[in-house]
Deep mutational scan, measured.
Amino acid sequence: QVALSRTQVCGILREELFQGDAFHQSDTHIFIIMGASGDLAKKKIYPTIWWLFRDGLLPENTFIVGYARSRLTVADIRKQSEPFFKATPEEKLKLEDFFARNSYVAGQYDDAASYQRLNSHMNALHLGSQANRLFYLALPPTVYEAVTKNIHESCMSQIGWNRIIVEKPFGRDLQSSDRLSNHISSLFREDQIYRIDHYLGKEMVQNLMVLRFANRIFGPIWNRDNIACVILTFKEPFGTEGRGGYFDEFGIIRDVMQNHLLQMLCLVAMEKPASTNSDDVRDEKVKVLKCISEVQANNVVLGQYVGNPDGEGEATKGYLDDPTVPRGSTTATFAAVVLYVENERWDGVPFILRCGKALNERKAEVRLQFHDVAGDIFHQQCKRNELVIRVQPNEAVYTKMMTKKPGMFFNPEESELDLTYGNRYKNVKLPDAYERLILDVFCGSQMHFVRSDELREAWRIFTPLLHQIELEKPKPIPYIYGSRGPTEADELMKRVGFQYEGTYKWVNPHKL
Rank of each mutant, 00 (worst) to 15 (best):
V256P: 08
M257T: 15
Q258G: 12
N259V: 12
L262G: 03
Q263C: 09
M264D: 03
M264K: 03
L265E: 01
L265V: 09
C266W: 01
C266Y: 01
C266L: 03
L267I: 13
L267S: 14
M270I: 07
K272N: 10
N277I: 10
N277V: 08
N277Q: 09
S278F: 07
S278Y: 05
D279V: 11
D280N: 05
V281P: 02
V281Y: 13
V281M: 14
K285Q: 13
V288Y: 01
V288N: 00
L289R: 01
I292C: 14
I292K: 02
I292Y: 02
E294L: 05
Q296F: 06
V300N: 01
L302K: 01
G303D: 01
D310F: 14
G311E: 10
E312K: 07
E314L: 12
A315G: 15
G318D: 06
Y319Q: 00
L320G: 14
D321I: 04
D322P: 03
D322G: 05
P323C: 08
P323K: 08
P323E: 11
G328R: 09
S329L: 01
T330A: 06
T330C: 05
T330E: 11
A332S: 08
T333D: 01
F334P: 01
V338C: 10
L339H: 03
V341R: 01
N343T: 04
N343G: 05
N343P: 02
N343M: 03
D347Y: 08
G348T: 06
P350F: 01
I352L: 04
R354K: 12
C355N: 01
G356I: 01
G356T: 01
K357L: 10
N360C: 08
A364S: 14
R367A: 10
R367M: 08
Q369A: 11
F370L: 10
H371Q: 13
D372H: 05
V373K: 02
D376L: 13
F378G: 01
H379M: 09
Q380F: 10
Q381R: 08
C382R: 13
K383M: 13
K383R: 09
R390D: 15
R390N: 15
R390L: 08
P393F: 01
P393W: 01
N394G: 10
E395H: 11
Y398P: 04
K404I: 15
K404L: 15
K405W: 07
P406W: 13
M408G: 10
F410S: 06
F410C: 06
P412N: 06
E413D: 13
E414Q: 13
E414G: 10
L417G: 06
N423C: 12
R424G: 12
N427W: 13
P431M: 14
P431Y: 09
A433G: 15
A433E: 15
R436T: 15
R436E: 15
R436Q: 15
R436H: 14
I438S: 00
L439M: 06
L439G: 08
V441L: 05
F442H: 02
C443H: 07
F449T: 04
S452W: 06
E454N: 04
R456V: 08
W459H: 12
L466K: 02
L466I: 12
Q468L: 13
P474D: 14
P474Q: 09
I477D: 09
Y481C: 08
G482K: 05
G482F: 01
R484Q: 13
T487F: 09
T487V: 13
A489I: 08
D490A: 13
D490R: 12
D490C: 12
L492P: 00
M493I: 13
K494N: 14
K494T: 14
K494R: 13
V496S: 06
G497R: 13
Q499Y: 14
V507M: 15
V507E: 14
N508M: 14
N508P: 15
N508Y: 13
P509A: 12
